[in-house]
C-alpha cells in the first residue's frame, strides 16, 4: 500500500528519536523546550486517532439539544448565542451533561494527564 509507514508510525519514530537521542544531549532551557516539543507530538498522535469521533459526538449532541442540524462550528455558534440571549436554561442538566462530555472528550486529546480530568474520570467510573 502507498503511504506506509503510516502517519502514526512516522510520528512515533520521530518522538522516539527525540526522546532517545536528542533529549540526553540537551540541558537547561533547551531541555525544557525539548520536553514541550515531545508533548506537542503526543497531542498530534492522540488527535489523529480521537478527533473525528470527538467532533462528531459534539456536533450530534448540540444538534439534538437545539433540535437543528449543521456543522460543529455553526451549531456551537448557535448554542453560544442562545446561552447569551438566555434562551437556553443555564442550569439545564442536559446542557451541562453535553458540555461536560464534549470537554472530557477534548481533554482526552489535549491534556489526558490533567488532574481534574483524571479525577472526573475516576468519579465517572465509581
Amino acid at each position: 500500500m502507498a503511504h506506509e509507514p503510516t502517519t502514526e508510525e512516522l510520528l512515533r519514530a520521530v518522538r522516539e528519536w527525540i526522546k532517545q537521542e536528542v533529549m540526553p544531549r540537551l540541558d537547561g532551557y533547551a531541555q525544557f523546550r525539548g520536553g514541550v516539543a515531545l508533548g506537542a507530538l503526543g497531542t498530534v498522535q492522540r488527535e489523529l486517532s480521537l478527533r473525528p469521533e470527538c467532533d462528531e459526538r459534539a456536533r450530534a449532541g448540540i444538534a439534538d439539544l437545539l433540535g437543528e442540524e449543521g456543522s460543529l462550528p455553526a451549531l456551537e455558534a448557535a448554542l453560544c448565542e442562545r446561552i447569551r440571549a438566555g434562551e437556553v436554561d443555564a442550569t439545564d442538566s442536559r446542557l451541562l451533561r453535553l458540555l461536560r462530555e464534549t470537554t472530557m472528550a477534548r481533554l482526552a486529546i489535549d491534556s489526558p494527564k490533567y488532574p481534574s480530568y483524571l479525577a472526573a474520570r475516576a468519579r465517572e467510573e465509581a
Binding site: R33, V36, A37, G39, A40, T43, L96, L99, R100, T103, M104, R106, L107, D110, S111, Y114, S116, Y117, A120
Partner: peptide, 23 residues
C-alpha cells in the same frame, strides 16, 4: 514559540474546572 502556542491547547482543562465549579 511552541510553549506559547500550547497554552492555547489548555483551554479544555480550564473549561472542565469551570464546569466543576458551576456544578
Amino acid at each position: 514559540s511552541l510553549e506559547r502556542g500550547l497554552v492555547g491547547r489548555r483551554l479544555a482543562e480550564t473549561e472542565l474546572d469551570l464546569l466543576d465549579l458551576l456544578e
